[in-house]
Design a protein around this nucleic acid. Structure first.
Length: 572
RNA sequence: GCCGGCGUAGCUCAGCGGUCUAGAGCGAUGGAUUCAUAACCCAUAGGUCGGUGGUUCAAUUCCACCCGCCGGUACCA
């Protein structure tokens, strides 16, 4: 995605919906790859800003508030903080983590809406919608249930958007014996008070950008297959006007006189949040106009990281909105991951069938999770998280391969070289080969990361570590140190170069372990701007005392997690 | 229903514009070794590449149909 030639890059990660805790599916989908890209690009000396924040509007938040008998603001305050803390614990470090339920965001989103309105890209239409007379509000289709209106189905439990039984789309206004799920959740009588009422809404004329959007996709053959397939699929079916307003109080008010009691649809305002937060960020940096460099100047880079469920909004609708507005450039890339399952089943927040980040972090450090999630990253197909496999990857790869390689080198230097980097006159041919291998890894890991192939990049890193172990075994420094210290030093000097290189290459994937290792090496932790351009570890350099970098976890700490999830399934 | 994905060694997966005797990691077996988190290193293990048919000199890789899972279907975000 030709980021190589871009010096200034803005990266966004999908805005988490502030209505629940953060789980591993979210992390693997968007935030971890985005964070790794940010860290890598910075190592390459790019100016990178990482934009994210809470998506705080939308109907589900108001329903959560009803359920808990608190204000919607209480809900978003709670989860905004919880999610931010979880990110911090995982070392996912944003330049800014904003929120959308603010006056400022209202203003930015309203301006955006008005611009489209004035340019004729938004039209008002009157339609029928289901209304609950007890809740005194219109309901999203998902929140009513009834009997399927297809004569050959007539199954109960059909939702307003789709019949669970026959799978066909439902016209919510035609459901038989509709039931308000909000009332039901709140323990109220849920039948008999659903009406169909007329209401006005504004629609974004996405259809008028069909050909422009197709050209946009055509210009990006390098995007991931799944994103292209999905987006072209939508275009082939024919785009429709999208309703972008809702009858609610909670959200960004529609900035029109007739818009009383209506707000912008959450998915219209959410991506505009990227713009709001960018502006807030650069204002806080006292460069209030600099956001324009990234949103309007094609020389800068703009990349969105998302989960595949957001593809329609980021690859089609938002670009359409930006086109309609006219002042914006289009994103260079939309990087979407597939879904992460858990122990073979779908992650389900409502059933508490998930690995929550805060829960994980109360017991384990961030890096083993970052490592495992990257090693199974759902880049081209859905992947499956299993605790057993987490344990195996941690113990067998992180600890036994990478950690042990580092450990054996460092302790060897401390035992037989007085804690110093061994001095060397000249490397052996085998040593030369290893140095070339380091350079090859540097280039290849870099290329893979530039193309957002995080899983392959991590595998490449691990192969370097394995190479190091092979070298160590072949050279047998434990023998030469008894007979030929100069030969031993030649071996260890080169081995330590691998350790040093790993300390840099590890950084995007496992930042805190990278920093720790840099500490053992007595090198500056911050390697910003330096993708191992040259070795800083010269002969005689004093090393610090190492500790075990990646401890192993035995069954006693893993099994309870497996049991907990199995319990959730049995009940569900 | 329609659109899309998946089904490859015991397990988890690479392989997605037909060239090698179909690969990797883990697991298993044998060997070597002791610097290291009983770690590492070497060797081996022969899986009808979901099924059937077709195109082709040649298909896991292309096409058709079938079986089994899964996702989307635009007011869930």
């Amino acid at each position: 995605m030709d980021l190589k030639n871009k010096q200034r890059i803005l990266i966004t990660a999908a805005l988490p919906y502030a209505n629940g805790r953060l789980h591993i599916g979210h992390v693997a989908g968007a935030y971890l790859p985005a964070d790794q890209a940010v860290r890598y690009l910075r190592l390459r000396g790019k100016e990178v800003h990482f934009i994210c924040g809470s998506d705080e509007n939308g109907a589900p938040i108001t329903f959560s508030a009803l359920k808990e008998n608190v204000a919607p603001q209480d809900i978003v305050d709670r989860y905004h903080k919880a999610i931010f803390d979880a990110f911090a614990g995982l070392n996912v470090e944003f330049s800014v983590y904003g929120r959308t339920h603010t006056r400022r965001h209202d203003a930015v989103a309203q301006d955006f809406f008005l611009r489209l309105y004035e340019r004729g890209h938004i039209v008002k239409k009157t339609g029928e919608q289901v209304y609950c007379t007890v809740c005194e509000r219109f309901l999203p289709d998902r929140y009513i249930e009834g009997t399927c209106h297809y004569p050959d189905c007539k199954s109960p439990g059909a939702r307003g958007d789709q019949c669970e039984k026959c799978g066909r789309p439902i016209d919510a206004t035609k459901l038989v014996d509709p039931e308000c799920m909000v009332c039901k959740t709140l323990g109220r009588e849920s039948h008999g008070h659903i009406e169909v009422r007329q209401t006005d809404h504004w629609y974004f004329r996405l259809d008028s950008f069909s050909s422009a959007l197709r050209e946009y996709l055509d210009a990006h053959p390098e995007w991931r297959e799944s994103v292209k397939r999905f987006s072209y699929g939508l275009l082939d079916q024919g785009l429709k006007e999208r309703g972008i307003t809702r009858d609610m109080e909670w959200g960004v008010p529609v900035p029109l006189p007739e818009g009383e009691g209506k707000v912008l649809y959450v998915w219209f305002d959410a991506p505009i949040g990227y713009i709001t937060f960018s502006r807030e960020y650069f204002e806080s940096m006292e460069h209030p106009d600099e956001w324009k460099d990234f949103w309007q100047d094609p020389d800068a880079g703009l990349v969105h990281f998302i989960g595949k469920d957001n593809t329609v909004f980021h690859a089609v609708i938002f670009p359409g909105m930006l086109m309609a507005h006219g002042d914006y450039r289009l994103p260079d890339a939309v990087v979407a991951n597939e879904f992460l399952n858990l122990e073979g089943d779908k992650i389900s927040t409502s059933r508490d069938y998930a690995v929550w980040v805060d829960e994980y972090l109360s017991e384990f450090p961030a890096d083993p999770l970052r490592y495992y999630l990257t090693s199974i990253a759902p880049e081209s197909a859905d992947a499956d998280f299993s605790w057993k496999q987490f344990q195996q990857h941690n113990n067998g790869e992180l600890a036994d391969n990478l950690g042990n390689f580092i450990q054996r080198n460092l302790t060897f230097c401390h035992k037989y070289f007085e804690g110093k980097m061994p001095e060397i006159d000249h490397p052996t041919p085998a040593g030369e080969a290893v140095l070339k291998e380091i350079e090859a890894a540097r280039v290849e890991i870099g290329e893979l990361l530039e193309e957002f192939h995080f899983k392959a990049a991590l595998e490449r890193l691990m192969r370097l570590s394995q190479k190091g172990n092979q070298y160590f075994a072949e050279e047998e420094p434990w023998k030469s140190r008894k007979t030929d210290m100069a030969a031993c030093a030649r071996t260890m000097h080169v081995g330590m170069k691998i350790v040093e290189a790993l300390s840099v290459f590890m950084n995007p994937f496992m930042p805190s372990s990278s920093a720790k290792l840099r500490g053992f090496l007595n090198l500056p932790a911050a390697v910003s701007g330096d993708w191992y351009a040259e070795s800083k570890l010269q002969g005689g350099h004093a090393l610090n005392e190492p500790e075990v970098l990646f401890p192993k976890y035995d069954d006693s700490v893993i099994q309870p997690h497996i049991d907990r999830l199995a319990g959730k399934l049995n009940k569900g």
